[in-house]
């Protein structure tokens, strides 16, 4: 190898085009990592499957009168839950890359500073899609049947993924504020569980006390679950969908700048 010391032409790392290109290459990296160790998807997929089994067969009869009826009601909500749990992985993976020094390597390359962030989030789309496919497949094995059309089901899936992409900035934010990857997981669960159960995923809102109903009715999880239900087993779609989209926009508007701020802060502390 001969090292002709010629000043290389200025690369295009600062242009938005290259940010997307490098982001996609790094997203490819995340996907390759999932392919090499699919067990990382286990917790994300196993949890809803266990919940599905537990709730449908344990409480289904009590809550909805029959397990079959409950399966229809709970499965769309569990899709939202998957997005919520899977979104934790984004912060965890980023935190791991930073503490292992992989980020230093990336940041010493002439690529946009945000490319690793973009890559991580884009790569997550695959995680969401795989986990949702597993849940839907399993649900159908148990007898879940969408009563609408395939396009509506697809829209529901895409909406849930979009929700995952807007809420994942919360885990990024936490990951940047908390040092160790393990602490990120712990912190995130504290945030995620109340969100998950403070919704109508598992039980009808009418059965809850008033103060809880007040929150559950406006909760983004409820709105999105209603939207998914409407799209998959029929019912009102427009209202909850607008509310869900507003929630997503709001979450992005608050969480994305906050996460970016924390990301830059963490990196400048080195």
């Amino acid at each position: 190898m001969s090292t002709a010391v010629v000043s290389p032409p200025a690369r295009s790392g600062s242009r938005p085009g290259s940010m997307v290109r490098h982001g996609l290459i790094l997203a490819g990296r995340s996907v390759a990592k999932i392919r090499k160790s699919p067990e990382t998807l286990l917790d994300v997929t196993l949890q809803p499957i266990l919940m599905l089994l537990m709730f449908v067969y344990l409480f289904g009869g009590a809550i909805a009168g029959s397990t079959d009826a409950y399966l229809q009601l709970v499965l769309p909500g569990l899709m939202v839950m998957i997005a919520l749990t899977a979104s934790l992985g984004t912060g965890f993976a980023l935190s791991q890359d930073i503490s292992k020094g992989v980020f230093d390597r990336f940041r010493s390359l002439p690529i946009a500073r945000s490319a690793p962030l973009v890559g991580a989030v884009l790569g997550d789309i695959v995680r969401y899609a795989v986990s949702l496919a597993v849940l839907l497949g399993f649900g159908m094995l148990l007898g879940f049947r969408a009563t609408t059309d395939p396009v509506s089901v697809l829209v529901a899936v895409l909406l849930v993924i979009a929700f995952g992409l807007s809420i994942c900035w919360l885990s990024v934010l936490l990951a940047m504020l908390v040092r160790s990857p393990q602490a990120v997981m712990g912190m995130s669960m504290v945030v995620i569980w109340p969100l998950m159960f403070g919704s109508n995923i598992f039980a009808p809102t009418e059965t809850m006390p008033g103060w809880l109903q007040a929150w559950v009715n406006i909760s983004p999880i409820t709105q999105l679950s209603d939207t998914a239900r409407g799209l998959m087993i029929g019912g009102e779609v427009a209202g909850p969908m607008v509310a869900s989209l507003l929630w997503m926009a709001g979450l992005l508007l608050v969480l994305f700048p906050a996460a970016s701020w924390a990301y830059r802060r963490r990196l400048s502390r080195g």
Partner: peptide, 16 residues
Amino acid sequence: REIIGLTGQYAALDEE
């Protein structure tokens, strides 16, 4: 960044 290479204290590799 176009002309440097960096090897940090800890091997920055993707294990898988």
